[in-house]
Design a protein around this nucleic acid. Structure first.
Length: 312
DNA sequence: CTCCAGGCGCCTT
DNA sequence: AAGGCGCATGGA
C-alpha cells in the first residue's frame, strides 16, 4: 500500500497508486456509508477533505487516486479508505455461521471507511426514514447551497465542499427545509449550532470510551441509538458499534431466526451481543448483502388481482 | 392509489 | 418499560 507519486516535476494535479489486498472499492464506496461518491467511467469520483478526488481500482490489488492539486502526503486518504486494516484478521473474529459466511462471500473486500465526524453526523441525521438515493440528493442540495466552492475538473459541474457547521448554523430552518430535509431540519440546525459554538467538540470525542461518545452524541435532538452508532462506526472507527436499522432487523430475523417467533427486543439484544469485537464490520456485510441480494419483500406481493373487478 | 424508507421524540398505557 | 403514532418527501 505504498504510495507512488507522479514524477511530473511541476504537476497541477496529483496521482498516487496504492497496493492493496482484499479490497473492494466499489462496494466500499457504494454501501450506504458515505453519500458523495458517484461512478464515472469505471472509476469513482467524490469530494472528501474539501477536494475533488477520482478513485479507480485498476486491478485487483491496485488503487489509483487522482486529485486536482499537488498532494505532498496521502495519509489522509489512506486513513479514509482504511488501507492499513488487515481484513482477514477482522473476518477471523466473526462468529462462524452460514448467514455471515454468505454475506461476506457476496462482497468480500468491502471495508468500513473512516469519515469526517461532522459530515458523517450531519448526513446520518438526515437519513431517518429516507432511502439512500434520497439521502444522497439532500446532501447534494446542502452542499450546493451551503458548501464552499472548490476546484473541479472540466467534465463535472461546479463543485462544493460539505458545508461547515458554521455555514449551516447561520441558516434558518426554512433554508434547510428548502433542501428537502423535511422534519429533520431542526435536528440538523441544532447539531450545527452545537458544533459551531464549541459546546460539542467532535474532534475531542475520538479519545473517549465508546459508550461515553454514544451518550454525548445522543444528547443531540434527532440522534438516537442507531444514528449515534453510525457515527461511532463510520467516523470514529469504533469497530464494535452495531447500527441496527430496518434492514439489519430484517437480516437478523430472516437469517438467524427463520420461521420462529422473535420479539424486536430479542433481536436487538441478539444483534448487540452476538457478533463480537468487530460487530460493525459484520453489520456492514449483512446490510450490503440484504440490500443487494434480498429484494424488498414488498416487491414479491402481487400488484394486480388475477380478475380485476368490473368497472362501475 | 398505498406502502415504505439506513429513526426519533413524544404521548399513551 | 413498552408500544403507537406523526413527521416531510419521494420511490416503488
Amino acid at each position: 500500500m505504498n504510495a507512488v507519486t507522479s514524477n511530473d516535476p511541476t504537476p497541477d494535479w496529483a496521482e498516487a497508486q496504492f497496493h492493496v489486498r482484499h479490497y473492494d472499492l466499489a462496494s466500499t464506496l457504494d454501501s450506504g456509508q458515505a453519500f458523495r461518491w458517484w461512478p464515472q467511467d469505471n472509476a469513482w469520483e467524490g469530494v472528501i477533505a474539501g477536494r475533488w478526488l477520482r478513485l479507480c481500482q485498476s486491478s485487483e490489488n491496485l488503487l489509483t487516486a487522482r486529485a486536482l492539486a499537488p498532494v505532498a502526503d496521502w495519509s489522509w486518504l489512506e486513513n479514509y479508505l482504511q488501507l492499513q486494516v488487515d481484513l482477514d484478521s477482522v473476518l477471523a473474529t466473526f462468529p462462524d455461521d452460514t448467514p455471515l459466511r454468505t454475506a461476506v462471500d457476496a462482497c468480500r473486500g468491502m471495508r468500513l471507511l473512516q469519515q469526517d465526524p461532522w459530515e458523517c453526523l450531519a448526513s446520518f441525521i438526515l437519513s431517518s426514514t429516507k432511502q439512500i438515493v434520497q439521502i444522497r440528493q439532500v446532501v447534494a442540495l446542502l452542499c450546493e447551497r451551503f458548501g464552499r466552492s472548490i476546484p473541479a475538473p472540466p467534465h463535472t459541474g461546479p463543485l462544493r465542499s460539505f458545508p461547515e457547521p458554521a455555514a449551516l448554523a447561520a441558516a434558518t430552518e426554512a433554508d434547510l427545509r428548502a433542501c428537502k430535509t423535511g422534519f429533520r431540519a431542526p435536528y440538523l440546525l441544532a447539531a450545527a449550532r452545537r458544533v459551531a459554538d464549541g459546546s460539542l467538540d467532535l474532534a475531542s470525542l475520538r479519545a473517549r470510551p465508546v459508550d461515553e461518545v454514544r451518550d454525548i452524541l445522543m444528547t443531540l435532538p434527532g440522534v438516537g441509538r442507531k444514528i449515534a452508532d453510525c457515527v461511532l462506526l463510520y467516523a470514529y472507527g469504533f469497530p464494535e458499534a452495531f447500527p441496527i436499522d430496518v434492514w439489519i432487523m430484517r437480516a437478523l430475523k430472516s437469517l438467524y431466526f427463520p420461521k420462529r417467533r422473535v420479539t424486536p427486543k430479542r433481536l436487538l439484544t441478539f444483534g448487540n451481543s452476538y457478533f463480537g469485537p468487530q460487530a460493525g464490520y459484520a453489520q456492514q456485510y449483512l446490510f450490503h448483502y440484504m440490500r443487494t441480494r434480498h429484494p424488498n419483500p414488498r416487491r414479491s406481493r402481487r400488484t394486480r388481482p388475477n380478475h380485476p373487478p368490473p368497472s362501475p
